[in-house]
Amino acid sequence: MIIAIASGKGGTGKTTVATGLAYTLARDGRRVELLDCDVEEPNAHLFVRPQSDCTEPVGVPVPRVDAEKCTNCGLCSEVCQFNAVACLPDRVVIADELCHGCGACVHFCPVQAMTETDRNIGVLESGRSTLDGVNKLHLRYGRLRIGEAMAVPLIRAVRRAAGPCDVTLIDAPPGTSCPVIAAVKGADFVLLVTEPTPFGLNDLQLAVEMVRALELPLAVVVNRSTVGDRAVWDYCRNENIDILLEIPDDRRIAEAYSRGLIAAEVLPQYAQTFRDLYLGIRDS
């Protein structure tokens, strides 16, 4: 089963929920793959503490032109949907950072003047968790090169890296655009983590619209549920969205988090909470 943990708003507790679920399910003996798809700011590794066993570069294909063969027909520029290719009267100029690596220019070149080379966008990291009592938890995550705009190919590489397992957990980036969609697409279930504030509700609504556009089943987790207002509950009732878990504003969770510890690791009662959450997802 593939469960994606997403949110519109950042800082609602996606990583807290993802690592809490990963830790609990792995301690119960399940083989868990945790995929941290927030490649701009990955941080699940701080909690899962993996022993790095693999670091590999990830690239996207970009075209190169053989000036000897090129006839300056302009077809490469015409078929490029991303305006990454300019055909000048005597040469072709390529803007690598705009290229999405779709290969259309290479495919359509009538004289086979174009070939592809790899442009590095970041690295893929893999490692097994070193947490006590956990030996079937694998973490995969990407680190996007600073300044790189092309996050989606790296997110896809993280998704592809998942090994055989019982449960795949995807820690998605915040927002509702391409990187989030690349992270949650193909999941069996999406958990949306929010907080009971006007800001949390507004971004939850955006995230619900996104998940519904992808036609995936979803439910909500309300984090810091004992603060703020009740508007998130009203919204979920009106929209027929299940709230599968409410995590109270518990100072002990914040303390564990501040030391880089998973709540369920130091507060055993939360292990049952995450177990119930998993069963709730499976049954819905």
């Binding site: 991303f82 990454a84 300019a86 000048l88 009267p89 803007a95 705009l98």
Partner: peptide
């Protein structure tokens, strides 16, 4: 995206 590139091509 890429307006400058296409504009440059067109001007050329």
């Amino acid at each position: 995206q890429g307006a400058g590139i296409q504009a440059g091509q067109n001007v050329a």
